[in-house]
């Protein structure tokens, strides 16, 4: 169990690193396009699409890792006011709702992916890619986040007490 949770943690950290590397790639890719175009060497018309797919990957790969680090912005107005008992009830409701949301995202994400795979739909832009490649990110992300919410619920039962109060998060904007 402990071992499994270590693997899970390591996986999420790896996803975070991948997301960071994708960001670096986006910066370099766009800059390359500007330079190539500006120096009259032509154009990298597929770069826009690659950047778009990278943004998608960053979003879904990073989401479980962000959740693990409690860095998804939340409104803790009520959580701060109520006592420990109220806080436990709120945590139970919030984490159950989160679990349901992620389970639904996982299930319908998986179904969409399978349907797209079966129909073999392609996206014709500058590059031609298979649509299910993109959608496959959704069930993966949904499943990992569902696991995180299950962990939180377990922690809540086991610790019989304080869910650490969420701190205001840097929205960075």
């Amino acid at each position: 169990m402990v071992r499994l949770s270590k693997v899970y943690d390591a996986l999420l950290e790896a996803l975070g690193i991948i997301a960071a590397l994708l960001l670096a790639f986006v910066v370099l890719g766009i800059t390359a396009e500007i330079v190539v175009r500006g120096t009259g060497l032509g154009s990298l018309p597929w770069m826009i699409e690659i950047v778009e797919y990278s943004l998608l990957a960053v979003t879904f790969l990073a989401a479980p890792w962000v959740l693990k680090h409690s860095a998804h912005v939340s409104v803790d107005l009520l959580v701060e006011i109520v006592g420990p008992r109220g806080r436990r009830i709120l945590a139970l409701v919030a984490n159950s709702a989160g679990l349901i949301v992620c389970a639904v995202i996982f299930y319908y994400g998986l179904r969409s992916t399978i349907e797209l795979y079966a129909a073999d739909t392609k996206i014709f832009k500058i590059m031609t890619i298979r649509e299910w490649w993109l959608f496959a990110l959704v069930p993966v992300s949904g499943a990992l986040m569902a696991i995180e919410f299950v962990c939180r619920l377990f922690r809540w039962v086991a610790a019989s007490g304080e869910e650490p109060a969420a701190r205001p998060v840097d929205t960075g904007l």
Binding site: A19, L23, A62, V73
Partner: peptide, 20 residues
């Protein structure tokens, strides 16, 4: 550089997931 990239990825993941 690594810290900057990782922190930016975190905020990006958060903001874009809301847009989703």
């Amino acid at each position: 550089l690594r810290t900057a990239l990782v922190e930016a990825a975190k905020v990006t993941g958060m903001a874009l997931f809301i847009i989703c």
